[in-house]
Nucleic acid binder design. Structure first.
Lengths: 117, 117
DNA sequence: TCCTACATTGGACTCAGTCCAAGTCAAATG
DNA sequence: CATTTGACTTGGACTGAGTCCAATGTAGGA
């Protein structure tokens, strides 16, 4: 089942993952897809991305740290590798006692497609 | 109705906003709260924050640019003002033709409360 | 006073995600 | 080989957040 996501450099919703899974295992249920995605997420194999859209998206590219560029109109997502490490930009005085383990940077804008339309 | 959010430096869900609104205008409906929140968002008076939780949260502090520190356990949110400007860290070559207008940085970690528990 | 325009209501609806009892299968055991 | 056990899967019901819309209420203008 993991193969469904593998090699895809796109960011699918759970339903899209389900649709693809069905192509290979016609009997597979949504519950199983959610279970498996959940596992993959806790294993760190896959990343959950919550955009402004309703549905979460799943990012198979969990191994290379990267950020996301989201189109505010159509919701398209691109991976992006900025320079700089925003974690370093957060001084202790701004941590309020939190144990900060992760940063997630989301750039918002309008993609070329939507800008043209 | 805007007053409900005003002065609150917390990040309420729409339902919490509704609950507070009811305290002042007992007849107010959820639909109205969503309408008003939507307007405030497009006016730029209020910020929508999507965490990993299911419900979006609304941030009344839209005027000072800031980022968020989210507790992965309890979902608590704190405003945070890091140094540095991550927009500048995104070279043109990583913009893929997008018109990038905004960055949103979310630090994830565990808050002191949850760490203690 | 009556009309019109518009915001508000409440309730039905959608959609993503979760839950759970029942079913299925395969490996382990007798 | 037959049976038990345990883990995985199923499908369908359920929940919670958000949206939609027809009906109602209200304010202001003629």
């Amino acid at each position: 089942m993991a193969e469904v996501l593998d090699g895809e450099h796109v960011h699918l919703t759970a339903d899209e993952v389900h649709a693809r899974a069905v192509a290979k295992l016609p009997e597979i249920s949504r519950a199983t897809v959610y279970n498996t995605l959940g596992e993959l997420v806790t294993l760190g194999e896959v990343l959950e991305v919550s955009t402004d859209q309703r549905a979460k998206r799943y990012d198979p590219n969990a191994h290379r740290p990267h950020h996301h560029l989201v189109c505010a109109r159509c919701g398209a997502i691109r991976d992006v590798h900025p320079s700089g490490n925003p974690l370093a930009d957060l001084p202790d005085s701004e941590r309020f006692g939190f144990t900060v383990s992760d940063v997630e940077v989301t750039y918002r804008g309008v993609c070329p497609n939507c800008a043209a339309a």
